[in-house]
Design a protein around this nucleic acid. Structure first.
Lengths: 406, 406
DNA sequence: AGTTTTGTTTCATGGGTTGACCTAAACCGA
DNA sequence: TCGGTTTAGGTCAACCCATGAAACAAAACT
């Protein structure tokens, strides 16, 4: 994995750059080169790649080694004459990122190291009907503690945490998360309180946004612009353009579930009519059939579809059509070339993909000469936790100087 | 006007920064501070604002003065004790940007100086039925020559040109512009050929995109995220988020005219059904009534609406509703807070705004707690030319070093 | 004339570069 | 097997150049 880093030729400083700042810029440049290298890279190769001289590279590498951000990983004997090169690669010890996720079926925690490898992944099934937000976040704080302890044994230091929540978030405040029965819950403050002893900086973000970032990492940056559609009790979307998450003015972008599909269609709890959610969310696909006890909506739909239940198949067709219409709106507006079906949709993709493609090909103006990709997400239900952990560590990946200055 | 500049805390270098690069970073920082200042600013104020020391500011200011990017504009006697401050402001001589626009009713050319002031604006009524792209672009090249000559007399040097075209553009290639009857016309190459003697770097972009940038400038950066909807024979949109134009993966974003409003609605020439264009474009509002000779579609609609023609008023209502639905999709997806009605819609706004607002308030999820603004665009039909000229000059505004190094 | 603030000059600092020289560790040919 | 060759990497000087600090000059006010 090479991370979220995208080259950008523009440089916009808001504060002056002094000589010391110069070193940190070049240090970050070198670090990004090491991040981007698929195999361990030598000092000389770095000098050639960055344009800096060997003495400067040596200085910087020494600093990175001292800060445990990179490691020397043995010699490369490639048969050529001369002294073998010393490989440098991102350290799998040192700083790490913690991801936390409140999923419809339980709580998840995840630790990712600097290389982007998942080092810890825990899941605890849970429901939310009977418990309030403080209890849920206290439980999550316990899981965070366990994750930090477990990875500390492997010489990892968790430096930041990101919490994924199924709903729009605004500076740590969860505006509304119907799946959890939350309204205006200050999840950031609650979690900070519950993890006070850990002293972690905590960020809260939308689940679909983080899952999109997870998929971006997992794709090794082969995706340039895509929508991650997360199906569940509601429908959310994370939009990535040019390797960057599109957050909107207030961070409430990606409300695909409330895009109008049929202007005079079914009423939606939001007050509008014909929202995508009323056709393609799990409750809509299940219509009024109750979910059997000890099962989940996700499982109920897949088992019925597998069994060939005609009502369910018809509902999936309706859902796919509606999803395709909403997505073609998004693509006409945004000009992106890939759709990732995530959340519950990743399990249902075999019933949805064809229908979605049909609608896209008909309705997206540029589809005629620029093909679109529709495929299930890679990381499945763990996309959001992993994305959250990766986001947390990405701050250090992009700005290693802040970690070195700790 | 303060320009497109937005502070960005991230710094991502792809090439090493040496001492000289350091100076250029700080030079650009200082230049942006001067751009952002509403009134002439002194060296000492710059030092306080940027965090650099006065000697450094003096050095940089000397360079900017030598390069004619700024001028010393007299002393400020504000009654306080001490030596009076020497005001520094953006030069209204020196580099300038040229904008060119192929409008449905004619050709336009515009020159804007570094301060963002329009210094030259010319319009030549014209139709396209009888002429091919080469003839049109040759005419435009003549207008460019005149504009450059006229402004050279005022000590302005046009350094770049941007061409606005009503249709999706891809590296200078106009994919399709139905209003002009163009398909796959390499407008960039043709214009470069016709202006070879002027030796200008030429960019081609979508008309709605450039108009959006024009409105952004004109708003003095009070807009953070907005959609500029351009009504005409078709419907296009320019989307600005965080002060930056959203171009999409291939630069084809903003195809609002082909957003699906009624999935089983009227067929559209694009092959789909129920596209916004089939309800809200000028031809749709005029339905089948022919435009009188010596009039334009724009004028025909406004005169009929002013006269209270019931069919036209009904059509405007349908158009407003469809526009509101499509815009609410865009806002749910993008999270922006302002809609600017541009092109022909700016003339029709008194009949459209209320209907659009109604739909937005019903269909946008966040409208309940975050109010939306809907208003006509400020610059009217000249938005695109002005935006094009501003884009051209904006390269120097953002990276003055490239101009100094010429 | 003294004060205050602005803008400039002078000098020291410090980072990066160049270039030279050196060591380490592989290969190669005798 | 051994010394020569080749390449990687480290170390040291000298230099460049932008910034910062402090002293200095300029132009207003009191």
């Amino acid at each position: 994995m090479t991370g979220l880093v995208r080259p950008s030729s523009t440089r916009q400083a808001t504060e002056p750059v002094r000589q010391e700042g110069l070193r940190s810029i070049n240090l970050e440049l070198v670090f990004r080169h090491i991040l981007a290298a698929p195999v361990p890279i030598s000092r000389t190769e770095l000098a050639a790649g960055t344009g800096l001289t060997r003495p400067t590279i040596s200085r910087i590498v020494d600093e990175l080694l001292a800060g445990k951000l990179i490691t020397e990983s043995g010699l490369t004997h490639d048969g050529r004459a001369g002294r073998p090169r010393v490989g440098l690669s991102i350290s799998d010890e040192g700083p790490a990122g913690l991801g936390l996720d409140i999923r419809s079926d339980g709580l998840a925690a995840c630790v990712v190291d600097l290389t982007g490898t998942v080092r810890h992944l825990a899941f605890a099934p849970s429901t939310y009907d009977d418990r309030g937000a403080p209890a849920v976040l206290a439980e999550l704080a316990r899981m965070a503690g366990t994750a930090i302890e477990a990875t500390a044994a492997e010489d990892l230091t968790v430096v930041t945490a990101t919490l994924a929540v199924p709903g729009p978030v605004d500076a740590g405040m969860v505006r509304s998360a119907p799946a959890l029965g939350w309204r205006n819950v200050d999840a950031g403050a609650l979690l900070r309180g519950a993890t006070r002893h850990l002293d972690l900086p905590i960020t809260v973000d939308n689940e679909a946004n983080l899952a999109a970032l997870g998929e971006l990492y997992a794709s090794d940056n082969t995706l340039s612009g895509f929508v991650y559609v997360s199906g569940g009790l509601g429908i959310g979307a994370g939009i990535v353009l040019d390797g960057q998450l599109l957050r909107g003015v207030r961070g409430w972008s990606g409300e695909l579930g409330h895009v109008t599909v049929y202007p005079d269609g079914k009423p939606c709890p939001c007050g509008s009519r014909g929202c995508l959610q009323t056709y393609a969310s799990l409750p809509a696909i299940l219509s009024d059939d109750p979910v059997p006890p000890h099962s989940t909506p996700d499982a109920a739909v897949t088992t019925r579809a597998d069994a060939g239940d005609p009502a369910t198949l018809a509902a999936l067709d309706t859902a796919g059509t509606a999803l395709g219409i909403a997505l073609s709106d998004a693509i006409n507006i945004l000009d992106i070339d890939t759709v990732l079906l995530g959340g519950a949709f990743s399990l249902l993709s075999s019933w949805l993909t064809a229908t979605v493609r049909t609608e896209l090909n008909q309705r997206v103006l540029t589809a005629a000469w620029a093909p679109l990709t529709v495929r299930p997400a890679q990381l499945g239900p763990d996309a959001a936790v992993i994305g959250a952990a990766l986001t947390a560590i990405d701050q250090i990946r992009q700005h290693p100087t802040t970690w070195l200055a700790r």
